[in-house]
């Protein structure tokens, strides 16, 4: 029987059939080139296209959600899988090809160097290609995350994250949407996990731009985060 790798790369995906195979293959290739043994897990969030079939064909482990929950929900399922299978490390990356797999590998190495439990791949250290509106939005959300939850990071909304074994075992959050990015940082702080950042680049193609967060979604995220904080205070 083949030995299970220590690391899993989790890719939450919703209607990504156009690009998912390429994302999986480039990630697998980058891992092989770096001599890192990984499993690639795609959490298909009830896509209406053939994301699941294509991911399976590209060699990924696929978990199909029964209902569409959102990126936060899909990431949570991925991390739960990592916990159940006792992986030592887990990384999350976007399914739209926004992340360079090489950066994922670098982050996997860096988390050990930084002795961190949660490593955020910060796109704001290298803003090349990021529109001004997105830059303002991301900075604004990072500021609000700091204001509400006291967690200071430069890119609170980055989907490229690496989790240590301790983080896999302890982290749990409730948000199902994009606001999970900030909530996850908050829960990490509550669990006294060490959070670190590492600069990564974001690849903005026409496709990844079309799939990314809508600017108006930022308003919804802020609303959800404020609600979350009030709920926590008021019980």
């Amino acid at each position: 029987m083949k030995k299970q790798p220590n690391t899993v790369i989790i890719i939450p995906a919703y209607n990504e059939s156009i690009i998912i195979s390429e994302v999986i293959k480039t990630a697998a290739h980058a891992a092989k080139a770096q001599n890192i043994s990984v499993d690639i897990l795609v959490v298909n969030d009830k896509s209406t296209d053939d994301t699941s079939a294509k991911a399976q064909k590209a060699g990924a482990i696929v978990i199909d959600h029964i209902i569409n929950r959102g990126v936060g929900g899909a990431t949570s399922t991925g991390l739960k899988y990592a916990k159940q299978k006792n992986y030592h490390q887990a990384a999350t990356m976007d399914a739209d090809g926004q992340h360079d797999p090489q950066d994922v590998m670098n982050c996997l190495k860096q988390i050990k160097v930084a002795k961190a439990d949660l490593l955020i791949g910060s796109r704001l250290s290298n803003k090349h290609g990021m529109s001004l509106v997105k830059r303002i939005g991301n900075n604004g959300l990072s500021f609000i995350t700091w204001l509400l939850f006291g967690v200071k990071v430069s890119d609170s909304q980055s989907g490229l994250r690496v989790f240590s074994r301790k983080a896999i075992q302890t982290l749990d959050w409730q948000s199902a949407g994009y606001e999970f990015c900030s909530e996850q940082l908050w829960r990490a702080k509550q669990a006294k996990l060490v959070v670190a950042e590492y600069p990564v680049k974001a690849i903005y193609t026409k496709y990844s731009k079309s799939k990314g967060q809508n600017n108006w979604n930022g308003v919804n995220i802020v609303k959800s985060l404020i609600k979350m904080k009030i709920k926590e205070i008021l019980g």
């Binding site: 959490v43 482990i61 696929v62 978990i63 199909d64 959600h65 029964i66 209902i67 929950r69 929900g73 949570s76 399922t77 739960k80 899988y81 159940q84 409730q174 199902a176």
Partner: peptide, 17 residues
Amino acid sequence: LENTLRKFHEEISIKLS
């Protein structure tokens, strides 16, 4: 209830897969 449902959905999705 929401939390239970969320955990149940995650568990069942993993098991079925």
